[in-house]
Simulated assay, not measured.
Amino acid sequence: MRTLYFDCFSGISGDMVIGALIDAGADPVQMEEELKKLNIDEEYKLSWGKVVKNGITSTKFDVILTSKSEQTHEHSHSHGHEHSHSHGHEHSQEHGHSHSHGHEHSQEHGHSHSHEHNHNHNHSHVLHHHHGSRTYKQIVEAINEANFNESVTNRSLAIFKKIGEAEGHIHGLPLEKVHFHEVGAVDSIIDIIGAAILIDQLGIESVQSSAIPTGTGHIHIDHGIYPVPAPATLEILKGVPIASNDIRFELTTPTGAAIAAVLTETFGSLPAMTVESIGYGAGTKTFENHPNVLRIIIGEIQ
């Protein structure tokens, strides 16, 4: 059985997942074409390229929001830790970090952006013109209308539902009333659906994961200063083994937590497998003593 193992020794976030999948051999150009089915490609550009994190070559993936997105000032500088999309809470920690990564790779992939805009007029997808606040219902409708492969659709819907239920629980709202002010931002939609596309592309049949380290310390969110893990992240990780870690930073984001919680069938140590490919996905932050990367291991389990 073709199995993917998330080795989350430095946490997990949506962009780290995509970076690791690309690093392991997935095709980002094909993912980019698939994502155009959402009909929001005028709002973003994608970039990916190699970076070195504490001696480990890894792939950094970024969503660069265009001027057509009202959220550019909030997100384009901090993607790479898309954790800020659930609450808007981590911006204060990330300023000055992802600027150095978000631009150095974009020139490598300009081929795929210049022709994107002629796809925007044939459909009336519900994500269009909802830059500031997309509801759970709108996101579900957009995913269903996009005609992705069934497995991509199902995985994407399940991950968004997990985040929506967590947000609803925290804020005392039913799922249909949840507004994704941050998780509904373009870059998190790309991270979640993009990850589902690449996992489908790689023919993954099962997913396993290590325990999830969340980090420690405090973060600023819309409602004040909260301890790490953030409320939504902790809610999403109910039933998931959390690893202790003394790094004073938010290592696991709501999106990363939801991807791991929804897709993983078994949490534990690396299973016995014949390893076929390995990928490293870079986060934005650089730590002194260990690489801030997500490692994925893909192989066959007999």
Rank of each mutant, 00 (worst) to 15 (best):
R2G: 00
L4A: 09
Y5M: 10
F6W: 10
F6Q: 02
D7K: 13
C8A: 13
G11K: 02
I12V: 14
V17W: 04
A26I: 01
P28F: 09
P28G: 03
K36D: 12
D41F: 10
E43P: 03
Y44R: 11
L46V: 01
W48H: 10
V51G: 04
T59I: 10
Q71T: 12
H73P: 03
S76F: 06
H77G: 14
G80Q: 04
H103Q: 11
S106Q: 13
N118G: 11
L127W: 14
S151V: 08
R155Y: 06
S156Y: 00
A158Q: 01
A158M: 00
A158K: 05
G172R: 05
P174Q: 03
E176A: 10
E182T: 07
V186F: 05
S188E: 05
I190Y: 05
I192C: 03
G194P: 02
L198K: 00
A211E: 13
I212T: 09
I212G: 10
T214I: 14
T216E: 14
H218S: 15
D222P: 06
P231V: 12
L234H: 15
L237R: 08
L237Q: 10
T252I: 08
P254L: 10
A261P: 09
A261V: 13
E265Y: 08
V275E: 03
T286Q: 03
H290F: 13
R295W: 02
